[in-house]
Design a protein around this nucleic acid. Structure first.
Lengths: 341, 341
DNA sequence: TTGTAAGCGTTATCAT
DNA sequence: ATGATAACGCTTACAA
């Protein structure tokens, strides 16, 4: 236990109020300059650290934020959602830096939304973050929290509603941009390969691709889309082979996810193609995965860090001033990360 | 904000002390039975929830536990340490259930241990958990925390020291057991395939294997161990092929990790073998990964859940009674999970 | 057996 | 401008 403002006050010959105000930067000239300096100097010297329990008690806050996830934490690794952990890491850091500790709630996916909402309302936390939830469940939970005037934000969920605070990457825009990029680069045919373990966002991605093909080439891209039955490395290899054999002229490949990109590159090589040299390959998702491929995969980013920055910014603002807060959302546009392919 | 003990006391016609004692189960017959009942009934009825800020303030606790990890949270997915997230999930649940919130500290691996220790000491938390740290760094940090009398435990690290609290699975014992199992099952040759992304624990695993071979067959197993250069799916496929061609009689395969087990099974099939039918394959690690293989992989478990139970139990005990606490450790013996191979 | 009251560290509302 | 002082909710030593 370090020094308290009371002790500091005694040392400075000031009142606890003065110390408190100075240390939390809330004195609007209420404290004289030389006294102010002395307080700050001694606080620094004695390594003062504010006690968040006391602060929270006085302010009626908990200084905790609940992070709600669908299912068990480790499930997301199995379904290839690496970005989930990236998001969790950024959230943890941002909240830690803002003085909040976290509460990870692993919500059983089998439960009824109403029950989940009731349980969430019981949690003693200043705010809630929903990580990568499906839109329907997220909307229901956000609604229920909103009714109880509990600050909340969905991070990694695209909602159609502007009553809530949410953020996500615009997958449709990213895939449209990728498609245009490949075509403008001189490719007359683009293969769209679905190699995601978790197919949640497939429709958005397909829509972006089809729009890009139609706008650039004036034709329907439906026959250029390939989806595999299973979702293992081998499935993706055979899917790629099938696509290459069906469209032997194609020199452009668009992947729905970076997760099995190594399998695609492997299969392309087996078919005599050389990603980055005689054909282009563009992925989507986690950069660390893309950089583990050889050659390293060019791809569109999920912009998780920016999403977290936006979401936590909004959440903290709502916590600080719930009445003035207006729900807001942000859909991040395409960001291309150029690598070797 | 729910009901407080003061309000509850008024409702029951009792004192706040009585309510407090009853609700925290600290009344040793100090409160009359019928009054006790009434307090409990009303608390239940009004959904009383203790305010952890107030509780912490009164007790001089924070009700926070810091979880320190090496590097960034998402790194562990890239290096195939799925069990890391399983551990984190179990820890989060156990701590949540015990009323603690968490603070995730992503420690930059490039920093000097002394600096890390200094920063950790600044953290306002009742206890520390080190997740999957390397032994040297873990020991240094545990020592420094011990000197400052801060409760701490290493979860997923094997230390040679019984001055600290730590827990891990006994990899050497698991690999010895696996080897004996395969040999006693009638296999005269056992292939040891290193297919882990992260090679930290390889020496322990090799030692267990060599001991098993020596004890059962009285020979040296060194020539039966194969390690790949890279650590991709394709590397593991070629590694397996090489092993099969080098030891065509072998009908037993022991894998250092479940991560690329699908690659091994794939390669075995390509070589005309059928895991689970004409040959045995035993892995090590995450069960969810093993169950995603076809056929599902028999393997030795990391026993993460039991490790967490032990570690958190010890940590909470140390937090509650730091003076009486004796450091303890537990190395979990082999647990075989039989599946199809 | 039961109740009173003094803390815990901080914030915010008062007088001065 | 500045400093007492009363909350905040809970625990616990002590008095009754």
């Amino acid at each position: 236990m370090g020094i308290t403002i009371r002790q500091l006050a005694r040392l400075c010959g000031a009142s606890t109020a003065a110390v408190s105000l100075v240390l939390s930067n809330k004195d609007q000239g209420r404290v004289g300059a030389q006294r102010r300096e002395k307080i700050l100097r001694l606080a620094e010297q004695y390594g003062y650290q504010s006690n968040s329990a006391a602060k929270g008690l006085a302010e009626g806050r908990t200084y905790r934020v609940a992070l709600a996830i669908e299912g068990v934490l480790s499930d997301h690794a199995i379904i290839g959602q690496f970005s989930f952990y990236e998001r969790l890491g950024f959230l943890a850091k941002a909240l830690h830096d803002a003085g909040y500790s976290i509460e990870i709630l692993q919500v059983d996916t089998g439960r009824k939304t109403a029950d989940v909402c009731r349980d969430l309302a019981r949690i003693a936390a200043d705010g809630f973050v929903l990580l990568n939830w499906e839109p329907e469940a997220a909307a229901a939970i956000l609604l229920s929290l909103r009714e109880k005037r509990r600050p909340a934000v969905a991070s990694g969920t695209l909602l159609r509603d502007d009553q809530y605070t949410w953020t996500d990457v615009d997958r449709a825009a990213a895939f449209e941009d990728a498609t245009r990029r490949l075509i403008r680069d001189g490719r007359r045919q683009v293969v769209f390969l679905d190699c995601e373990v978790h197919h949640t966002h497939l429709p958005e991605k397909q829509a972006g691709f089809l729009k890009g093909v139609r706008d650039e080439l004036g034709r329907d891209g439906k026959r250029w889309m390939f989806a595999s039955g299973g979702s293992s490395y081998d499935d993706v290899v055979s899917l790629t082979q099938k696509a290459v054999r069906r469209m032997p002229e194609a020199r452009a490949f668009l992947l729905t996810d970076n997760f099995y990109a190594a399998a695609v590159e492997h299969a392309l090589r087996r078919e005599g193609l050389h990603p980055g040299a005689d054909c282009r390959v563009i992925g989507f998702g986690d950069t660390a995965l893309a950089d583990r491929c050889t050659p390293r995969l060019s791809h569109y980013s999920l912009q998780v860090e920016r999403q977290v920055e936006f979401g936590i910014g909004a959440l903290l603002e709502e916590i600080q001033n719930p009445d003035a807060f207006q729900p807001r959302h942000q859909l991040f546009g395409p960001e291309f990360i150029e690598r070797d392919t």
